Simulated scan of single mutants.
Amino acid sequence: MNDDDIAPKLRTPAVSPPKPLPHPQDPVEQEFWQRCQGGTLHFQRCGECRTWRHLPRYMCARCGSPSFAWEPSSGRGRLFSWTVTHQALHPAFAADVPYVAAVVELDEGVRMATRLTGADPATLALDMPVALAFETIGDGFRLPVFTPAAGA
């Protein structure tokens, strides 16, 4: 079988392109990613009602206040939902399949779409404890991901 017999999406590229990086246009989203580059995960917290929020935004969804501060996350949470991806939708991820695309609910109460690394997909379970890690992609860009917590 040669490459002509394999569907283009299933072909492994000879040279893998770099993984795409976030390119936020909004300053509040840019600040989220800049804080990640320091190796810590921060979320906005309302200055009025103290509600945590993610995705970053200019007004609190609970009380409507524009007041907020960036506060560090504990980096701990639980697996809320996941899917095992067996087909790379971008050639840069071909070497990673299968991988786990997940939604993690952090101790702060926010939910975050992410990748779960270092886990056997057959062992995943709802509410499995997870911990923050950072994966370096591109030219030193730090992407927040999660791994099973010790003892999980």
Rank of each mutant, 00 (worst) to 15 (best):
3 D>Y: 06
4 D>T: 14
4 D>P: 00
5 D>K: 09
6 I>M: 06
10 L>M: 08
12 T>F: 09
13 P>L: 04
13 P>H: 01
15 V>H: 12
15 V>I: 15
19 K>W: 08
22 P>Y: 06
22 P>C: 06
24 P>Q: 06
28 V>Y: 04
30 Q>K: 15
34 Q>E: 05
35 R>P: 04
36 C>M: 05
37 Q>C: 11
40 T>G: 14
44 Q>I: 08
45 R>A: 07
47 G>P: 12
48 E>L: 07
51 T>Q: 15
51 T>H: 10
51 T>L: 05
53 R>S: 08
53 R>A: 08
53 R>I: 00
53 R>P: 00
57 R>V: 01
57 R>Q: 14
59 M>V: 14
61 A>F: 13
61 A>V: 12
63 C>M: 12
67 S>G: 06
70 W>E: 01
70 W>N: 05
74 S>E: 12
75 G>F: 06
75 G>H: 04
75 G>K: 04
76 R>V: 02
78 R>A: 01
82 W>T: 04
82 W>C: 03
86 H>L: 10
89 L>R: 04
90 H>C: 01
90 H>W: 04
90 H>K: 03
92 A>M: 12
92 A>P: 10
93 F>D: 10
94 A>R: 13
95 A>F: 06
97 V>F: 07
98 P>A: 11
98 P>T: 11
98 P>S: 13
99 Y>E: 10
99 Y>V: 12
99 Y>P: 04
100 V>A: 09
100 V>N: 01
101 A>H: 12
101 A>G: 12
101 A>S: 14
107 D>A: 15
110 V>S: 01
111 R>H: 07
112 M>A: 01
115 R>Y: 06
116 L>P: 00
116 L>C: 06
118 G>I: 03
119 A>R: 02
121 P>K: 05
125 A>S: 14
129 P>Y: 08
132 L>T: 05
134 F>C: 01
134 F>Y: 03
139 D>G: 09
141 F>E: 08
142 R>P: 01
142 R>C: 05
143 L>R: 06
144 P>H: 04
144 P>E: 10
145 V>Y: 05
151 G>F: 09
